[in-house]
Design a protein around this nucleic acid. Structure first.
Length: 800
RNA sequence: GCCGGAAUGGCGGAACAGGCAGACGCCCGGGACUUAAAAUCCCGUGAUGCGAGAGUAUCGUACGGGUUCGAUUCCCGUUUCCGGCACCA
């Protein structure tokens, strides 16, 4: 058979479609398997080969599961709210709705061309009213439960995009979208109280089957630290300066305190502070700096001493000077620290610059020269002297603080509450009404969805106001509570919102009564296997786990954790080994590959190019190699002869079935394909195979290259789809050889190989090895010191 | 700085409960078919030395040590690269 991929692919895609071959049943006696891939953002650029690799992994696993008799749900959808579409709309004057529809259409046709076995009846689009109605519903539930709240704070603001950005979206002090400098601005913003779930998000990781590095990144992101809060009394006042420290046992080494420049105590006691002019000047200087600039000057510490305000060490009673310095952040801990320069490099730098005393409390370093952060014996520390174990001394210090009532043990998280609003058009409107009398009032549930109003100009307003603020008919409304004049919230939700619960909607995509039917949720959840990019394992994964835990608390979903297993694929780099980017001109368009080589080749190559979880460069020649392989597969129909098993091939078939079956489970697709390549080489060497064997081969390859496999399967007289035929089985006993080649070493150097029966006893193996003519010269006339035999592997003879 | 991960032929990568390093693919060289080319098929292909030759010896998994009969695999130290976090108290 010739590999006429153009016609073959069209033919089978049409047939799968017509038969709804990959439709997931909501009620079934079969075991369920829910495979989830990260749904794409339908950008104007179209699909990227990276998408293909990302989906091909679970595509193969889903197809294998179906053949194994599972009821498989493998859905796809579109995460379509977001800035690129809106910016494009602003530039071209097209409506974001139109742009989105066009892009989704293009993505859909591209995905279909590749032959992915998605259930096309479950497609969702986060920008559709039926969908975002439930995004808004979840938001209102959070609002009701005090998890969505408004607060005035300094925010990262991008003057170009005119939006408030989360810390995550403004990493490095640059806007994530347009890369211009981010500035600090005070604004009322919406937050989701994700910190309330920090411990549970951490806890849930313990039993989750995530790749270890994915777990670790989430742990780091949440950033839990254990320590203590300590209250230092402010001399001459009744107030306390509260600090957080991870090393309460170093309290005897405190020689100064530092407050963040924004610390409220400064304003409260401005009349006591004698050098308020200098303090104000310093604060003004700091406010000009972005978060990024503040972190840039790591080495050069700046600050101002507060004259007239000092603190008292609660353990020693010693008076301690207070400084303000921007190396202390208001956003972490209490915004103030106790400084122990002997054992903290930052405090050390500051102390050196300002000529502050350094007191060693942990032995082991030279605290004249640098801060010592290692372990050691406690000294100069009163009741803590002599402790050598960090854990013990910390516990003892906390015990003492609690006894004296001046502090207590506590934990802190690096993770902050989630800034949850954007001043842009193309997002879910936040369903809140501001009433002068009643305050913030939720839009009644029966009024959802709160539709995005029609507009022609989407550019953000001045001062970062949402474009929605310009539509009077949208803004002005009646308060649902008191009926008085009120106005709507005009901000929209960030792009992360829609993707925080999409896996639930696939389960029941057209439900008009609730976000998904509880019975169906009960059947399908949790997601059995979720694969996606490494870049989403912190933000998206944590956000969606947070929403899911909240929904679990509401009783909406049946399980606490949404994803039973999470893996991540590696990047596809350009042929030059660099990250693919338009500006470098090294982007490979999957359409071109399908045109020239076919969808099966594209699928096989993206999985064969290397370790699935590692980055690998694209190679046109590698693609050609996969084309050759599939052409040879098509050619197998010309070798058909006989019945049953071909004796020369039987063993190899059983071995290959075993290898492919196992490798797919551990996502070692490259070695699974290599095994099939090896087998085909053997078949061509044998020059013949039976219909039964070819049937096994195509079913084995079907998850990878389904089109050509269906075609061959049909040519064998099969009526049922290959894609839904049983997965080949292997006979373990037939994967084992009767004899093995065992390597013979003398003093660890390979000297010969001998053919031995399987599981040959050690004595016999050694005897045969010593008798080999290639081994004899190396042992003759020498004393044999030791003889080692590892069954079926190696014999090593040690001589002197 | 901290937390992960990686380093293997000309290239992508195999093999790691310690046991014949380089599976599979690519590139490259030689041959067959062809008027010719492409495609296809066959053979070879880690490096170096010796040998006319089938061969044979030595060296080879980033670098330096260690454990072991035996190390790409385990331990200690170093370098480089990739990803994430970052004045997190």
């Amino acid at each position: 058979m010739r590999n006429d991929f153009k016609n073959i692919e069209k033919k089978w895609q049409a047939r799968w479609d017509a038969e709804k071959a990959f439709h997931a049943e909501d009620k079934s006696d079969k075991k369920k398997f829910y495979a989830l891939v990260e749904f794409p953002y339908p950008s104007g650029a179209g699909m990227h080969v990276g998408h293909i690799k990302a989906y091909s992994g679970l595509e193969v696993i889903s197809r294998k599961r179906r053949m194994e008799g599972y009821n498989v749900m493998f859905p796809i959808g579109f995460d379509a709210f977001g800035l690129p579409t809106e910016n494009y709309a602003i530039k071209t004057g097209m409506h974001p709705r139109t742009v989105t529809d066009k892009n989704i259409e293009r993505f859909t046709s591209q995905l279909r061309r590749v032959g992915f076995s998605f259930d096309w009846d479950r497609v969702i689009d986060t920008t559709e009213e039926d969908y975002y109605r439930w995004t808004q519903w979840i938001f209102l539930k959070m609002f009701e439960n005090g998890l969505a709240f408004r607060d005035k704070t300094l925010v990262n603001y991008c003057p170009t995009c005119k939006v408030v950005l989360s810390n995550e979206d403004s990493q490095g002090g640059k806007c994530d979208i347009c890369h211009s400098d981010v500035v600090q601005k005070s604004k009322d913003v919406w937050y989701l109280r994700i910190t309330k779930y920090a411990d549970r998000l951490l806890e849930g990781l313990k039993n989750a089957d995530y790749l270890p590095n994915i777990k670790q990144q989430q742990i780091n992101w949440i950033g839990k630290s254990e320590g203590a809060f300590v209250n230092f009394s402010l001399t001459g006042t009744d107030d306390k300066l509260r600090i957080y420290t991870t090393r309460p046992d170093t309290l005897f080494g405190v020689t100064f305190m530092v407050m963040a420049p924004e610390h409220p105590m400064i304003d409260k006691y401005s009349d006591r502070i004698k050098n308020m002019d200098a303090v104000e000047a310093y604060r003004a200087e700091c406010s000009k700096k972005t978060e990024f600039e503040r972190t840039q000057l790591v080495k050069d510490k700046t600050g101002v001493k507060l004259e007239g305000l000092s603190a008292k060490n609660p353990l020693t009673g010693k008076e301690i000077p207070i400084y303000i310095a921007d190396y202390v952040m208001m956003g972490y801990g209490t915004g103030a620290i106790m400084a122990v320069p002997a054992h903290d490099p930052r405090d050390f730098d500051f102390a050196k610059k300002f000529g502050i005393e350094v007191i060693e409390v942990i032995k082991g370093g030279d605290t004249e020269k640098e801060a010592y952060t290692g372990d050691g014996e406690m000294v100069n520390s009163g009741f803590l002297n002599g402790y050598t174990n960090k854990k013990d001394s910390i516990a003892r210090a906390i015990e003492e603080l609690e006894k004296l009532g001046v502090g207590e043990g506590g934990v802190q998280y690096k993770m902050k509450d989630w800034a949850f609003n954007r001043q842009r058009y193309w997002g879910e409107p936040i369903p809140i009404i501001h009433c002068p009398k009643c305050g913030m009032v939720a839009v009644p549930y029966e009024e959802l969805p709160l539709r995005l109003p029609e507009m022609k100009e989407f550019a953000p307003g001045q001062n970062g106001e949402s474009p929605l603020a310009r539509i009077d008919s949208f803004v002005h409304c009646k308060c649902p509570k008191c009926g008085g004049e009120a106005h709507r919230e005009t901000d929209t939700m960030p792009q992360w919102a829609g993707s925080s619960w999409y896996f639930l909607r696939y389960i029941d995509p057209h439900n008009e009564k609730c976000l998904a039917d509880p019975e169906k949720l009960n059947y399908w959840m949790p997601v059995d296997w979720y694969n996606g990019g490494m870049e989403h394992v912190t933000r998206h994964l944590i956000y969606s786990r947070f929403w899911h835990k909240f929904l679990y608390d509401l009783g909406v979903v049946p399980c606490d954790e949404p994803y039973a297993k999470r893996t991540a694929q590696g990047l596809i780099l350009g042929p030059d080994g660099e990250k693919m980017s338009k500006s470098k001109g090294n982007v490979v368009d999957p359409n071109d590959v399908v045109d020239e080589y076919g969808a099966d080749v594209l699928r096989v190559y993206t999985l064969f190019m290397g370790d699935y979880t590692a980055a690998a460069p694209w190679s046109e020649n590698g693609v050609k190699g996969c084309k050759r392989f599939l052409d040879r597969v098509a050619g197998l129909t010309d070798l058909l002869a006989g019945k049953g098993e071909t004796p020369a091939l039987a063993k190899s078939f059983h071995k290959t079935v075993k290898k492919v079956t196992e490798d797919i489970e551990s996502m070692k697709f490259n070695t699974a394909i290599a095994a099939m390549m090896s087998l085909i080489n053997e078949i061509y060497e044998a020059g013949t195979l039976t219909r039964e064997e070819l049937g096994v081969f195509v079913r084995l390859l079907c998850p990878f290259a389904p089109h050509i496999c269906e075609e061959i399967w049909e040519s064998l007289g099969e009526k049922k789809l290959c894609s839904l035929s049983p997965w080949p089985e292997y006979d373990e006993s037939k994967t084992v050889d009767n004899t093995v080649e065992v390597a013979v070493q003398v003093n660890g150097k390979l000297r010969a190989t001998v053919e031995l029966p399987m599981n040959c006893p050690a004595s016999e193996a050694i005897a045969k090895a010593k008798a080999d003519e290639r081994v004899l010269p190396f042992i003759e006339g020498k004393t044999i010191v030791k003889e080692i035999s590892v069954p079926n592997r190696i014999v090593n003879i040690v001589v002197r």
